[in-house]
Design a binder for these strands. Structure first.
Lengths: 307, 307
DNA sequence: CTAAGTGATAATCAGTGGTTATGAATTTCA
DNA sequence: TGAAATTCATAACCACTGATTATCACTTAG
């Protein structure tokens, strides 16, 4: 590949102007410079491209075919040029990972917020559990991840966004049978309770076990549900209890008749939702804008559950 | 447009290798040269394209988008490169003009000859009368024209290909009524004969008038037919006589029952079929090859009518 | 802690692509 | 017919670009 974009531009200009002098003007160079480049291109491509007459320049058959190809190259280069010009203001196509216990509840608001306030960020979403997301982030397949902190790993940097408290979820009957009143319900009161949890690998499962002081080998634990939506329906039917993050509370209670929620007494168990990025990611100003949108939307949702 | 194809090649290599050193090796340049060009490209396009880690290089969101565009440009440039390589052996896409009294009879043989002996010439045909063809040739829309000489015009160069003698065509009855025997039939014997001719603008019309010593204002002339095929059918039905070139003889007598042909006595009236090109067209070796194919086919056809 | 890996920077120089001036050929016009 | 105009090609010269080697700064691995 021994031709240059400049040579192709000159070639196209001569083909259009049918005159070396005028083509040189259009290209803002001197006629001899253009003449030399056209000749070099003819040597590179192995044939005469123009039939030179005293007052006219005609394309040879070879020249005609080359012009067609040159147009493809220059067209594509123009589109790259135009893209760079359009995107000098920070327009980006992002790839963001998000865990399943956050995605369904947070994304509608976040995408709407991005669309309403600023169209320069286009987001492609990748939904997976934490370990997988961190692997994608490490390998560059995603640019940042929304998950429950801590992520672990010195190569990452965490941006805490908002607190997402856990509520106890179950059927009205099941919740009535608890001995403690709502004001003083404590997670450790559930040590012998029957818990329905997400399958292993979801952080929410580990968090629930820790908060309730239970162990994965306990006979009271059922870990097999694949989503919070499934969990909601099971506990609403009386199949045990589960921990429900505030983020999901309104959405699930509206979708599942019979699902009831109780707040724990202070200090309330919670997870911190954060944005995780590679420590080596610098100079990407979209990161702060995205973090702010997610924080606003997330805090809006959890605040609404507290009123 | 201030980036170069080289820069895009380097960029693509780094994106694929994820390492400046290995990318430089792939591109056969030193690592610092490549590093400087990537940095220049980042400045030209207005953003960071790669996230540099100690042991890995990741594309930024902007880098990902640019890579997509760069691939389009490089792909198109590769195709031009490949085209040049494929066509260094003289492959050409020609644009050839040919008059209507030659095209139907000569073209099948010529195209078959081109296909059989050499696939490097691709021919696009433009059929029109002589004046129009010369105008196309002058303006560069066609590369050469096949017509009856002389073409006229000092800007053109003529290559005579073969002689195409005229035969007298008519119905058996009409031809029997001529007083002279076949051996001594002369064109001027037709001065008072009723002639059917092509509409004005076809060289064959002027040639017939001249050969027969007639004038376009003569009451014996009917000029309205639009093709030799039409003429054949009219004279076969007894509507006058016409001059039929050898090139068309076999084809028309096979297609039109009742059509009879007579040869003139020596010196036989004829037209010279030639290839006309611009005098400024030089260094196009396909011209001789094409001329040879046409000559072989044309002479083959007229020779067959003489046996 | 040392050695290895890796991209960035600096100094230098060959090569590229531009300019002005001029030559050669053709065409136009008086 | 000759002079002037037009037009592409060539030559001499020079600024700029893109390459090299050497080195630096930083991180990571052993």
């Amino acid at each position: 590949m021994n031709f240059t974009l400049r040579q192709l531009q000159y070639f196209q200009a001569v083909a259009e102007q049918r005159n070396f002098g005028r083509a040189a003007q259009v290209c803002n160079v001197s006629q001899p410079a253009l003449s030399v480049q056209i000749k070099a291109l003819e040597e590179t491509l192995g044939g005469i491209l123009f039939e030179r007459q005293a007052r006219d320049i005609l394309l040879t058959p070879l020249g005609r075919d080359v012009l067609e190809h040159a147009r493809q190259v220059l067209g594509a280069a123009d589109r790259l040029d135009q893209f760079a010009r359009d995107h000098s203001g920070g327009h980006r196509s992002l790839s963001i990972g998000i865990i399943p216990t956050i995605a369904p509840y947070l994304l509608p608001g976040v995408l709407a917020g991005l669309r309403a306030g600023d169209v320069s960020l286009r987001v492609r979403i990748r939904e997976a559990r934490t370990e997988r997301l961190l692997s994608f982030l490490r390998g560059g397949e995603i640019d940042a991840a929304v998950l429950a902190l801590p992520a672990g790993g010195s190569e990452f940097q965490e941006i805490p966004l908002f607190k997402d408290q856990f509520l106890l979820a179950g059927s009205a009957t099941r919740l009535k049978r608890l001995s403690t009143s709502p004001d003083v319900l404590r997670p450790l009161d559930l040590q012998s309770a029957q818990l329905m949890l997400l399958e292993d690998g979801h952080c929410l499962t580990d968090q629930a076990l820790e908060v309730c002081g239970q162990d994965r080998s306990s006979g009271q634990i059922n870990m097999g549900a694949s989503s919070l939506a499934t969990l909601s329906r099971l506990v609403a039917e009386g199949f045990g209890l589960t921990l429900m993050p505030e983020l999901a509370a309104r959405s699930e209670t509206e979708a599942v008749p019979g699902l009831r929620l109780l707040r724990f007494g202070a200090p309330q168990p919670a997870r911190t939702v954060g944005l995780v990025r590679r420590a080596s990611t610098v100079g990407e100003d979209w990161m702060d804008r995205l973090a702010q949108v997610i924080r606003d939307v997330g805090e809006g949702i959890v605040t609404a559950t507290r009123t």
